[in-house]
C-alpha cells in the first residue's frame, strides 16, 4: 500500500492508497476532521504524482457545502479535480476549515510539469464507493473513498 506518514509528537497525519478493482482508493487520517480532509487531498494528488514533487507556489481557494460531512468529503475532492483539470495544476499542500458542513480551503500548487511530475493518470471524479468519514477509537479522523481514473 502506497503510504506517506508525518509524525509530530503523538499527532499522526497520514495518507495512503487502497486497492479497488479498476480504480484507486484514497484515504487520509489526521487528528481532526480538517486534517483528514487535508490528508485525503494529498492522497488524491498521489494518484497523479508524488505530492512532494509539487511546489506549493500558487494558492487556489476552494469552497463547497453539502447536507452532510461525508457528502462534503466527496464534494471537496471533486472541487479539487475540477481545479486540477481546468487550471492544469497539481497541488502539494492543503489547508482546510470546516464549519456546519461548509468547507473553505486553500490548495497550493503549480502548473503540471511533465518532466518533473511524470503524471500517471487523470482523475475523472471522486465517488461514493467505499466512502467513509469517521472518528476512530483513538480519536483520529479517517476520510476515504474511491476515485475513478
Amino acid at each position: 500500500m502506497r503510504k506517506n506518514q508525518r509524525v509530530t509528537a503523538s499527532i499522526r497525519n497520514t495518507w495512503e492508497h487502497f486497492p479497488h478493482g479498476a480504480d484507486i482508493g484514497v484515504r487520509g487520517v489526521g487528528p481532526t476532521k480538517e486534517a483528514a480532509f487535508e490528508q485525503i487531498a494529498l492522497a488524491l494528488t498521489g494518484v497523479v504524482t508524488d505530492p512532494l514533487r509539487v511546489r506549493p507556489a500558487l494558492p487556489v481557494h476552494v469552497s463547497c457545502q453539502a447536507p452532510s460531512d461525508d457528502l462534503l468529503l466527496v464534494d471537496w475532492l471533486n472541487a479539487l479535480v475540477y481545479e486540477m483539470a481546468t487550471r492544469r495544476m497539481l497541488f502539494g499542500a492543503y489547508s482546510v476549515a470546516i464549519s456546519d458542513s461548509r468547507l473553505k480551503a486553500t490548495a497550493w500548487g503549480e502548473a503540471v510539469d511533465l518532466d518533473r511530475h511524470e503524471p500517471a493518470v487523470e482523475i475523472k471524479g471522486a465517488t461514493y464507493t467505499a466512502l467513509r468519514l469517521a472518528c476512530l477509537e483513538d480519536g483520529h479522523w479517517l476520510a476515504q473513498c474511491v476515485v475513478d481514473v
Binding site: P19, H20, I24
Partner: peptide, 10 residues
C-alpha cells in the same frame, strides 16, 4: 476488464 488494481500493477 482488469484483473489487478492499478495499485498492485504499479
Amino acid at each position: 476488464g482488469r484483473s489487478m488494481s492499478r495499485h498492485q500493477a504499479a
